[in-house]
Amino acid sequence: MTSDEFDADPAADPDDGLALDPGEGDDESATERTREELRKTRERLGEGAGKAVKGFDDNVVDLLAWLLDTETRARIYVYLRDDPRSTSDEVADGTGLYPSTVREALAELHDEGTVERDKRESSGAGNNPYEYEAIAPSDLVRGVVGDVQEELNAVFNLDRRLGGESPDGDAEPVQISVGGGEENGKGGEEGDAAAESDEDGDR
């Protein structure tokens, strides 16, 4: 390469560092077109990132809907994990659900032990609403482990049942343990040992 090849392009805009084709028109219109393209590209990238986040959120809600029976209950649970100590009206505003639907779902979730509630403290006179808080995800999982384990063992014993044997004599090779780290003190090597003992029982 010669030193002449490094000379500045007369059609380059010093503001954006992009070389422009002089054949496309004057420098100003070409620069404006380039900036418009960059703006559109940034918007597309932003939309793509937004869709990725929404897709992640939707996947979590779908999974929780399986655990909590409905998408409505799942969305309320996610909202309360993110904004604990919220009233039913605040949950309705935050989720976009009807207030009556939220109140009904919160009553059910409270009866099941999935959410806890306390009266909101207020210095003034009047009706103090309930504040709701969702239990930890590890506690939620522990609550359904027994049912899932029973269903998996029923599938495992399908051939025995089809052969006319009583479900009362089902083997239980599937053992699910939930490790919660510091919460239940069972994790790390101890949790691994429990998992290995379950596998040994399958052999």
Rank of each mutant, 00 (worst) to 15 (best):
E5P: 03
A8I: 09
D9E: 08
A11S: 15
D13F: 01
D15E: 11
D15Y: 04
D16K: 02
D21F: 00
P22T: 02
G23T: 08
E24A: 13
A30E: 12
A30W: 06
T34K: 09
T34M: 12
T34Y: 13
E36M: 04
E37P: 00
L38Y: 14
L38R: 13
R39A: 13
K40P: 00
E43S: 13
E47L: 13
G48T: 11
A49G: 06
G50R: 15
K51S: 11
A52C: 08
V53Y: 10
F56P: 00
F56V: 13
F56H: 13
D69Q: 07
D69H: 05
T72R: 15
Y77S: 02
Y79T: 02
L80V: 01
R81A: 00
P84K: 09
P84R: 01
S86N: 10
S88V: 01
D89G: 09
D89Q: 10
D89I: 04
E90G: 12
V91I: 04
D93S: 11
D93E: 15
G94I: 09
G94P: 02
G96I: 12
G96T: 08
L97R: 11
Y98S: 14
P99G: 06
P99D: 09
T101G: 03
V102S: 14
E104K: 13
A105F: 05
A107F: 02
E108Q: 02
L109A: 09
L109M: 15
D111G: 07
D111L: 10
E112N: 12
E116N: 05
K119M: 07
S122H: 11
A125N: 12
A125D: 13
Y130T: 01
A134G: 10
S138L: 06
S138R: 07
R142Q: 06
G143Q: 05
G146V: 06
D147T: 13
V148Q: 04
Q149P: 00
E150Y: 05
V155Y: 06
N157S: 10
G163V: 03
E165T: 02
E165N: 09
E165H: 00
E165F: 07
D168L: 11
G169F: 11
A171K: 02
A171Y: 09
E172H: 01
E172A: 08
V174Q: 06
Q175R: 06
Q175Y: 03
S177A: 11
N184H: 05
K186N: 11
K186M: 10
G187R: 07
G187E: 12
G188A: 15
E190N: 12
G191W: 13
G191N: 12
G191H: 15
A194C: 04
A195M: 14
A195W: 09
D200H: 11
G201R: 15
